[in-house]
Amino acid sequence: MTDRCWDASYEKLLRGALPRLAEKETVSPDTSLKSVGLDSLAMVEVLALVENEYGITIPDEELSAGVFDTPGTLWTLVSALREQRTPGVA
């Protein structure tokens, strides 16, 4: 479902916000973000970072618990919002 198709800045951003993820050699799309230290404060930090990086605004109704489960689930939402913003550039 969630193959690792994200860009380098996404991985860098996650590693920067989550020190325990930074220790891992590879970031798998299925890593539980909670297990690498994503608490609610880190969640808000990651939220602000991805919004800045990709020039998107994640609406509150999309901020359900599942979105921040793994790097893959979050990336799925980020890519969907980027596509909406720049139609045709996937």
């Binding site: 609610s40 509150d60 901020l63 618990a65």
Partner: peptide, 11 residues
Amino acid sequence: DADGHARLLGY
């Protein structure tokens, strides 16, 4: 609840 913290301000 803790799950809703990312939406806290909107809430």
